[in-house]
Amino acid sequence: MPLHSLQHLSPTAVLGLWRLTETPAELWLLLPQAAAYQRLLPATADARRQAQWLGGRVLLHRLLAEARGSASEGTQVHNDPTGRPYLHGTAADLTVSLSHSGTWVAAIVAQGGRAGVDVEEIRDKAQRLASKFLAPNEWAAAQAASQATADASAHYTLLWSAKETLYKLAAQRGIIFKTQLLLGEFEPQKAGEIPATLVLSGLETRHCICYSQPSPGYVLTYCHEPLA
Score class of each variant (00 low, 15 high):
L200G: 09
S201M: 13
K163D: 08
P195H: 01
C208R: 15
F186R: 04
T205I: 14
C210Y: 14
C210G: 13
C208T: 12
L159Y: 05
Q180S: 04
E187Y: 09
K190F: 07
I194R: 06
T179Q: 11
T157L: 12
L166Q: 06
L169F: 10
G192R: 10
A154R: 04
V199T: 11
T179A: 04
G192K: 03
W160Y: 03
W160H: 03
R206A: 15
Y167E: 06
A170S: 10
D151R: 13
Y211L: 04
G202C: 10
G174K: 03
I194D: 03
I175V: 07
G184S: 07
T205K: 10
S212W: 07
P188E: 06
I194G: 09
S215A: 13
L181G: 00
L159K: 10
I175R: 08
Q180W: 08
F177D: 12
I176G: 10
Y167K: 11
T157R: 01
F186D: 08
G217N: 06
G217S: 07
Y167D: 10
W160G: 04
A171D: 13
Q180K: 04
T165C: 11
T197F: 08
R206I: 14
K168L: 09
H207A: 09
T205E: 13
P216M: 06
G174V: 00
T179L: 08
L182A: 01
E164W: 08
T179D: 02
G217C: 04
F186Y: 04
L203N: 15
A162I: 11
Q180A: 02
G217V: 10
K190N: 15
W160M: 01
L203I: 11
T197N: 14
F177N: 03
F186C: 00
A191D: 09
I176Q: 15
G174F: 06
Y156L: 06
L182K: 05
L198C: 02
P216N: 06
L181W: 03
I175L: 04
A171H: 12
E193F: 10
L169V: 04
G174D: 02
L169I: 03
E185W: 12
L182D: 05
L200D: 14
I176L: 14
C208Y: 05
H207P: 13
S215V: 04
V199R: 09
A196S: 09
C210L: 13
L182E: 01
E164P: 12
S161G: 02
L182I: 05
T157M: 03
A191G: 12
F177V: 09
L203W: 12
E204V: 07
H155N: 13
G217T: 11
L181K: 09
